[in-house]
Amino acid sequence: MRQSNAIIELKGVSKTYQIGDEGYVALKGIDLTINHNEFVAITGPSGSGKSTLMNILGCLSTPTNGEYQLNNQNVANYDEDQLAHVRNHSIGFIFQSFNLLPRQSVLQNVIHPLKYRSMSSVERKRRALSALDKVGLGDKVNSFPSQLSGGQRQRVAIARALVTEPEILLGDEPTGNLDSKTTQEIMALFDQLHEQGQTVVLVTHEQDIADHCQREVRLVDGLLASDVSKERVSWGLAC
């Protein structure tokens, strides 16, 4: 049962970077399974390898060794085009610095990932508007990122991640640039998406964010140090 429910399955994943003549081992054999509709935080101090893990999970890079089953496909050996396809179809990225295109409107930003699919522009727009509605920005479609607050920008980024209906939402310090009130709002939005069945994986070094998640996977020095599932701490108590 648990097996079939797994969205992400890492087996012995390691990653070595070549820096000059020396190899730097960022991940030293990670086994990790994330199931459908889990809300997972990946934590760890700087240099623990959590960014590397995040890049592998997001198919931005491939492991040096090991197996990565994403939705029952072994993507560890995929070539660049296949990875691009997986990123477009299965992964919704949310970045700390939002990474919106400044010259494009909110709507165009949200449509962006759909441009890499064959789809009519009407359908693209329909999906983008529905994603923007989900994050509560239905009234800002024609604004530009510079006209929005940090929280609103991150909502646009989440809408952009959701518009492709990905299997997992992958947040890299999604609240790192936000104040505590906005952080609260964004986390509430993640909660809401999680309740609607979305699998959410957040990489963070903030303990209160990690505490908010169902499960905390902690990395230290490229190894899995702990993997704790717990009752979720309600955000209100954490404040």
């Binding site: 931005l60 660049e80 990123r87 962006h112 492709t164």
Partner: peptide, 16 residues
């Protein structure tokens, strides 16, 4: 460069 990175993270292939 950043824009290209964003496009790639959203699924743009090298060919695009």
């Amino acid at each position: 460069t950043k824009e290209i990175g964003i496009a790639k993270s959203l699924g743009a292939t090298s060919r695009i």
